[in-house]
Simulated assay, not measured.
Amino acid sequence: MFTGIVEELGEIVGIESAGDSAKLTIHGPLVTQDAVHGASIAVNGVCLTVVDVKDETFTADAVKETLDRSALGALGPGARVNLERPVRLQDRLGGHLVQGHVDGVGRVVSREPGERWELVTVSLPPGLSRYVVDKGSITVDGISLTVVEAGDDAFSVALIPTTLALTTLGHKAPGDPVNLEVDVVAKYVERMLGARAAEPAPETAGPAGGVS
């Protein structure tokens, strides 16, 4: 489990293709300080398992499902990536609960610069808009952000100077893909309400104690 608070801007230094999967080697001096084989690290919001650690880099496998459902497959050596280690139970939850499971890939639609911040609009894949609400939380490339305005096929977020300087969103241009993870609480609520609606109506007792 993650919080969507990016710890470090890393760099992909190697990609080894293996048919329908890939092995990524990523430079990240901070997140590798305590990384071990089997540890989890979120890369642009995708939870990956560390298989090797060496010289401030770590290597992780990305299987077909990961490449199909995220924008990691579009990246190459030299690409910058947002990195975050899992939250510890005693840590503060600075962002919101993030699983590192990408729900879909959106694209940057536009950027509107302000004096010290930017309003960025991102497209929403079909089926995700029902989970996105004004002032709710969403994860974009592993970054926990607050939705400014939610539409049927896009949403906007306001990026402060820190986000612009220390994450990949400071460099994304219109048309660039981004990984999206909606608030998991919204998905659980939808599931529970759907199950309740599908339940048969309870039987009621008649006046003589029978069943009507």
Score class of each variant (00 low, 15 high):
V178I: 08
T32Q: 01
E56P: 03
S70W: 02
W117Y: 10
V148S: 11
A197V: 09
E190S: 05
P29L: 13
A35S: 09
P202E: 01
D103W: 10
A18W: 01
R80W: 04
T121Q: 13
I15T: 11
L72H: 04
G38H: 14
K54E: 13
L72P: 05
V178S: 02
R111A: 12
R107A: 15
A208I: 01
A62E: 01
L97G: 01
V178L: 09
T168W: 00
R69L: 10
A79W: 04
G28R: 04
E203S: 15
V50Y: 08
D20R: 13
L124F: 02
G28V: 02
D153G: 07
L67F: 07
Y131V: 03
A186G: 15
T32S: 06
G76W: 12
V122G: 01
G73F: 01
G106R: 00
L67K: 06
M192Y: 09
S110P: 11
E112L: 14
V50W: 07
V102W: 00
T167V: 04
S110G: 09
V178C: 04
V184L: 15
R191Y: 03
M1N: 02
V157A: 12
G151F: 10
V51F: 08
I5F: 07
E118C: 11
L67Q: 05
A42F: 05
V36M: 14
P200Q: 01
T59Q: 13
S129L: 11
E16C: 06
S212L: 13
D152N: 13
G151E: 14
V140F: 10
R116V: 09
V46A: 15
L30H: 12
R88H: 07
A71Y: 01
V108K: 01
